[in-house]
């Protein structure tokens, strides 16, 4: 998942927010590493975000 300042600025603009070149550069830089990490994830097809709370409940000591 690559990311560049133009993509950042375009995403913000689409939401009605204008970013300066400096802001877009900084945002792209700070997102690069975590986005690369996310891109390396492989989560099972059936996992849903809402399984979070259930996982906490199941993880209790019994």
């Amino acid at each position: 998942m690559s990311f560049d300042p133009q993509s950042v600025a375009a995403a913000a603009k689409a939401l009605g927010i204008a970013l300066s070149q400096e802001q877009a550069d900084a945002a792209a830089k700070s997102l690069a590493a975590p986005l690369a990490k996310i891109a390396s994830f492989r989560v099972d097809f059936d996992v849903e975000p809402a399984h979070y709370a259930a996982a906490l409940d199941k993880g209790r000591a019994r």
Binding site: L35, D44, V47, P49, Y52, A55, L56, K58, G59
Partner: peptide, 14 residues
């Protein structure tokens, strides 16, 4: 990416 992060968290906890 946001949803993948949420799904990864759900999968990582157990």
């Amino acid at each position: 990416a946001y949803l993948d992060a949420l799904r990864n968290r759900a999968a990582a906890i157990p």
